[in-house]
Amino acid sequence: MSKRHVLSIAGVNKTFGGLKALTDINLNIEEGKTHAIIGPNGAGKSTLLNTCIGRLKPDNGTITFEGTDLTGGNMTPHGINQLGVSRVFQTPEIFPDLTLLQNVMIPAFAKRDGAFSFNIFKGLREEKQLRDEAMHLLEDFEMQNLAHVHAGSLSRGNKRRLELAMCLIQHPKLLLLDEPTAGMARHDTNRTIDLLKKIKERGMTKVIIEHDMHVVFSLADRISVLAQGAIIAEGTPDEIKGHPKVREAYLGTAEI
């Protein structure tokens, strides 16, 4: 089996003022695997993801995606996305004024046409292939009935699912998920887990931050535990479950 690393984080530090948010993070994400990052609130999980997509610059260290350094000075969020990294945010970032179908079509255009294109002479309706693809994806998400509804009127859980659909239509090489099931009803959580399992079968690499242990243990191939900005343990789900340091820092009170 190949052990190619899609994403390599090496020696990353990040401080906010006097606060050490990330301390010497080293992490390798293997191709095709689902890697979960867990840890108590304020452990630095979201900060770590933000450094991967260009939202934050680490103080030092390197983040390499398929050989490209993402921490370089000329790396922009849209540039990183164009390399093949998509992200689901902790609070859903969608286009509330557009319909669900349009919400899904926009990322598809980004994938097809690049960061800028002035395409005004072919109407949206004539983009048949792209429309069909977007509609098909909405069907996978059981949201085809809502295709022409404005996304702003969706429930929070549905907004999350829509955002996931927006990421998936880009067929990213690496998908970063920041608590993809937070605020969802149990039923929706289970549907999302099923969806993510399906993606896993297609071999998409994922990094997932999650509080819900049910989600983590049903999806993750590997788990890293972050506490106070440092990785305190890494291993397979079984290893993590039995890890004394992890129990002490994080899982001590949780039922598994």
């Binding site: 849209h78 996305n81 998509s86 349009q102 926009i106």
Partner: peptide, 14 residues
């Protein structure tokens, strides 16, 4: 889409 959510637009590759 830019009017609606510029942040999402950037992280979507535009």
């Amino acid at each position: 889409a830019i009017k609606s959510n510029q942040t999402r637009m950037e992280f979507t590759g535009f």
